[in-house]
Write a protein that binds this DNA or RNA. Structure first.
Lengths: 194, 194
DNA sequence: GTCTATATCAAGATAGAC
DNA sequence: GTCTATCTTGATATAGAC
């Protein structure tokens, strides 16, 4: 078979294409190898095993999501818009990467009852980024002692948007719904401050 | 090995215990058989294959959820309470059955990129029940032309609650958050009617 | 209908050459 | 680092007796 110098990147690309759309367990390593045009031993040389491959594909994905979200925040002009930017960012992000069926991180978490330490850490870093950044963005919008509660609510709404994708809703509509609900939630939080 | 006359029920119980907590693919048939104390051939005689077993376990589960939800609605005393009853019902339901890690239906959907017709139908019937019943309950609460939009929002919130379980939140807190957000969403919908 | 024993097969992972 | 070829395992499903 042909030799591919960028085997590593090709494997990560194929993993995003296949494992994050069909599910990890439903995607045999063979299929990833065929799609990447790479030999088995190459995969194991780079990633150790299948879980290592999945883990590093998630890590690369998280970096991209981080960038997309951050730039959406940078473009927004009010504290409220910055807090809500996570929703349009999600819409934009999903057009820029091989679309997971819903959420690559939650999807992998759902089928990994006993993740190894590395994978566990990577999965946690997704929720970590989500809550930490929302917290920063919430502080200018609501009173400090309401920020944590508001963040928890927004994380739930954001997670709900992802879940709607799994229920078959298209991205635009799910994001629009999420934005609307998040708006109502913020109103209510602002109201409770007065 | 010992003979079990209620092999069918035992298999469904074991499936709920194992497959809906660990994930379907992560739960070998052998493990279900061992847990049920039943022989392989018995399983295949009753259910045809693994997917058949999963499907029927989901169907039984949906019937129970239906009952729990309906009785929570019956206990509520105002239209608004009846509409919101889905949240406390979820909390009660999860204490009454072997707890899936988050949601048995969404969990199976997430790892089944190509479900067979029976499984597909069963998975759809979950979302179907959710939206249809919420629609009935929403009509007395908001103007008719806002009911569909409100239902979509509540389905998202409900789905978000389930997703938070997957993110590791405990049931009580997730349900409480969902109830709070749903309240805000309904306020906003009522407001837009005025 | 249920059991024991086993067939079949696919999947993850490795050996060894280049 | 990458390839070809193969090993090993573990999982789904079936055969045949009771």
């Amino acid at each position: 078979m042909e030799v591919h110098p960028r085997a590593r990147e090709r494997l990560l690309d194929a993993t995003e294409d296949l494992a994050f759309t069909q599910g990890v367990a439903a995607t045999p390593v063979d299929e990833i190898l065929r799609s990447a045009g790479v030999a088995p031993a190459t995969l194991y040389a780079h990633f150790g095993n299948k879980e290592g491959l999945i883990t590093q594909a998630l890590e690369r994905r998280l970096m991209r999501w981080d960038e997309v979200w951050q730039s959406a925040i940078d473009e927004a002009s009010t504290p409220r818009e910055r807090l809500l930017a996570v929703f349009p960012a999600l819409g934009r992000y999903r057009m820029s990467v091989p679309a997971a069926r819903w959420c690559a991180f939650l999807g992998v978490a759902a089928e990994s009852p006993h993740p190894g330490p590395q994978l566990q850490k990577t999965l946690a870093s997704d929720t970590q980024l989500l809550t930490a950044r929302l917290k920063e963005l919430a502080v200018p919008v609501v009173a400090a002692d309401h920020a944590d509660a508001l963040v928890a609510q927004l994380v739930l709404v954001y997670t709900g948007v992802l879940g709607m994708l799994l229920r078959g809703m298209d991205t635009e509509r799910a994001v629009g719904l999420g934005l609307h609900i998040a708006g109502a939630v913020i109103e209510a939080a602002e109201g409770s401050r007065r």
